[in-house]
């Protein structure tokens, strides 16, 4: 099966895709985009969160064929060249990254949250990020990072 999809603004085609493969496998193993992570492959951890047509989804639960002709944006597509997105910058600065395996998914989920809700309350942050498990940080510094990114984005 051939899968053609727009990833981070560039159209990519891959061949010989087994139809049981997930979008996550296609991104990681066929398109050279390992940023989205394979931590549970059952939608319970959020590590593989990517945008599909502008909405954050678990790439492990999207069948490869379902992404044909769609727009995918991964964590690799958030920075503006060398310049980190404010959410990425805040994660680094606040110590929200330890092992970092959950980070790509959390960065995409937080990016989506702040695009929809520019100044979320703590409970809003918690509900919005409840699908992203982190085992290292206890989430404290992730909350710090989202708050910091919100503050920075609010500035013109």
């Amino acid at each position: 099966m051939r899968v053609t999809t727009t990833v981070n603004g560039t159209e990519q085609s891959v061949d010989d895709v087994w139809p049981g493969e997930s979008l996550l496998y296609v991104l990681r193993e066929r398109m050279g985009l390992p940023g989205a992570k394979n931590a549970c492959e059952q939608g319970e951890c959020g590590s593989c969160t990517v945008y599909l047509d502008g909405e954050p989804v678990c790439a492990c639960l999207v069948a490869a064929g379902q992404a044909i002709g769609r727009e995918v944006v991964t964590v690799e597509g958030l920075a503006d060249g060398e310049r980190l997105h404010p959410v990425q910058e805040a994660f680094v600065e606040c110590g929200a990254v330890q092992c970092g395996f959950c980070t790509p998914g959390l960065v995409v989920a937080a990016h989506d949250l702040l695009a929809r809700v520019p100044s979320p309350s703590d409970l809003e942050i918690r509900e919005a990020l409840a699908g992203n498990l982190c085992r290292c940080t206890g989430y404290e510094k992730i909350l710090d990072a989202v708050r910091l990114a919100a503050t920075r984005q609010a500035r013109p």
Binding site: L33, P34, G35, A36, K37, T74, V75, E76, L78, A79, L84, Q88, E89, F91, V92, E93, G95, V97, G100, F101, T103, P104, V107
Partner: peptide, 15 residues
Amino acid sequence: LRPDGTLKVTGEFAY
């Protein structure tokens, strides 16, 4: 800052 922080937030860090 962690020396691997930027790589980890951009998805470039190789696990």
